[in-house]
């Protein structure tokens, strides 16, 4: 087990010894600060902390996801593009373990980006606008449930974002393992991520039952918070619930993982 930790340490070294990781993380914190300061300087009416939080999350969380997807898409493909995969694989480790160490380091990065967003939004907003106690999520984030506090919403929000981000990077990771080209897998992953929301809007117009099972319909989990457990409608007429969305995501997750593993462990390395 200790040995496996060394593999993950290697993967982390390859992520964090590059300036780009710190530029990404720094950008998230910097953007949070910039938005807060500009808003507080330019607004005529006094702003409230939690409503600013709502605005900032809309901006920062997708950006954090983009950064995570870039790292995930480059994780395996970067080794192929650079040719370093050869020297990486000829060690006394099976390919599965090497791949797992890469996956673990990607998940750590996802958590790291979300943690940076979590902390910088909370701290910067509290510092600039003053921390507000006892605000309801109904007022701050516009949810239906009046009993939910903003503080509690904030935490549920990050928990659910972590789940959908994990599915998103697993998709990018799979594309990375299958296509073995950094540029292609970063491009394709970002395209899917950015087009996903638009695509899901478009698909709602399609009156077919399979639409309910399309991945992009389920990546926005935070809409379920404080909505009484259901949001939107399935084509069968019953409401779309968080349970259903999580089940669909789990299904995709398993497929992505199986494909990544199969392709990475079976294919010849000719890079």
């Amino acid at each position: 087990m200790f040995d496996f930790a060394a593999l993950v340490a290697n993967e982390n070294m390859k992520i964090y010894r590059r300036p780009r990781a710190w530029i990404m993380l720094g950008l998230l914190a910097l953007l949070a600060a910039a938005v807060a300061l500009i808003a507080s300087a330019s607004s005529s009416s006094p702003l409230e902390m939690w409503s600013m939080t709502s605005v900032m999350l809309m901006l920062l969380v997708p950006l954090a996801n983009i950064f995570s997807v870039i790292i995930a898409a480059d994780s395996v493909a970067g080794e192929f593009t650079g040719g370093t995969i050869k020297l990486l694989l000829i060690r006394p480790w099976t390919r599965s373990k090497v791949l797992l160490s890469k996956y673990v380091s990607v998940l750590i990065f996802v958590m790291f980006t979300l943690l940076v967003v979590y902390l910088s939004v909370l701290l910067i907003n509290s510092a600039v606008f003053g921390y507000e106690r006892g605000v309801s999520a109904e007022k701050a984030f516009g949810v239906l449930d009046p009993s939910l506090s903003a503080w509690s919403y904030y935490h549920q929000y990050f928990l659910l974002e972590l789940i959908s981000a994990a599915v998103g990077v697993t998709l990018a990771f799979m594309i990375s393992a299958v296509f073995r080209s950094s540029a292609l897998s970063i491009g394709l992953s970002l395209f899917l991520l950015l087009m996903g929301a638009t695509l899901s809007q478009l698909l709602r117009l399609v009156d077919k039952p399979w639409v309910d099972y399309v991945l992009f319909q389920h990546l926005n989990l935070t809409r379920y918070i404080g909505s009484g457990g259901a949001s939107g409608e399935l084509h069968s007429g019953s409401p779309m619930t968080i349970g259903f969305s999580l089940a669909v995501l789990a299904g995709y997750y398993l497929v992505f993982m199986a494909l990544s593993w199969f392709v990475f462990t079976k294919r010849d390395v000719a890079a």
Binding site: M13, G82, G83, T84, L87, I90
Partner: peptide, 14 residues
């Protein structure tokens, strides 16, 4: 086994 396969491609950013 210790090996170099084709070019010695290392992590350039390290």
């Amino acid at each position: 086994v210790g090996a170099i396969v084709e070019n010695p491609e290392m992590y350039k950013y390290l």
